[in-house]
């Protein structure tokens, strides 16, 4: 490559890097500053002195509760999503029946539905069933809105598993449940991990259902808790940044460990938001 072009490429790469990463760096470095240090020099990316006091203080302010709630609802939802969507994908990918295509398309369309179109009835429903302001109220909507993409990913993957495996088992007299649990499910680990990671990221970060369905601080998930922090401690910038950093760590850690799964989830669905 010619030198001029090379310089241009590097300038472009570094400008993009500044744009995407500077806010991040600002968040992380501010969370290590003391209040005094922040007011003295709010912009510096490399603080003169590091302190962990912000992290301990946000933990004391209730972040632990939000964190535990988020872990709980995310793990339970994701486990349910994996099993329910794997079950549904088996007939959709391996069996011929009249409603196959319509049901599959119905699920696909679910990816495009704006959550707002379901908010009010779900709010009313959870009030009537007495789930309002409990973590349980989030479970139904979280699982339901995760199903379309998960069924899509799993159905595609399952239809590529060789038929021979299944036929051999059938000759041995295995029923559908046997085939599903002993042959299909164990062979679907890549698709399952894509589904787990994709949904983990989205459910961990989910905001609007939690906003309308949860009221008490002891039941709040992280996104709602962060918003509450902001309302109460908006002067304590380093404290808030520490909370933001902590809330972002799990998802970023997952991405760094399992980059490819995150990417394949995103590209197979091509659904934004």
């Amino acid at each position: 490559m010619k030198l001029g072009k090379k310089i241009l490429l590097y300038v472009l790469a570094i400008s993009l890097l500044l744009f995407t990463s500077y806010p991040f760096l600002y968040m992380v470095s501010t969370s290590f500053k003391s209040m005094g240090g922040f007011f003295e020099n709010p912009f510096s990316v490399f603080p003169k002195s590091f302190t962990l006091e912000q992290f301990t203080s946000v933990f004391e302010m209730g972040l632990v509760t939000y964190f535990i709630n988020s872990v709980l609802i995310t793990v339970v939802s994701v486990v349910l999503v994996v099993f329910i969507s794997a079950l549904a994908s088996y007939p959709l990918s391996r069996m011929k029946f009249r409603l196959n295509r319509p049901i599959f398309v119905l699920f696909l369309v679910g990816m495009m539905i704006p959550i707002h179109a379901t908010l009010i009835p779900i709010f009313v429903m959870s009030n009537e069933l007495g789930f309002y302001d409990t973590l349980l109220s989030l479970l139904g909507p979280y699982v339901a809105f995760a199903l379309p993409i998960s069924i899509f990913i799993m159905t595609q993957f399952m239809s590529e598993i060789p038929v021979e495996l299944e036929e051999a088992a059938k000759l041995d007299g295995a029923g559908n449940w046997m085939i599903f649990s002993k042959i299909m499910f164990p062979n679907m680990i890549p698709a399952i991990s894509t589904v787990v990671i994709y949904n983990f990221v989205h459910i961990w970060n989910e905001f609007i259902f939690a906003l309308i369905l949860i009221k008490s601080p002891e039941n709040m998930t992280l996104p709602i808790g962060l918003q509450k922090f902001y309302g109460e401690f908006s002067v304590n910038v380093p404290g808030l940044m520490a909370a933001l950093t902590l809330a972002s760590i799990p998802v970023i850690a997952i991405f760094i460990i399992a980059q490819e799964r995150v990417v394949s989830g995103l590209t197979s669905g091509s659904v934004k938001g």
Partner: peptide
């Protein structure tokens, strides 16, 4: 990885 980080953060954060 660095270009992708923003997309991973929660919208609230």
């Amino acid at each position: 990885v660095l270009y992708f980080l923003p997309y991973l953060m929660s919208a609230v954060a």
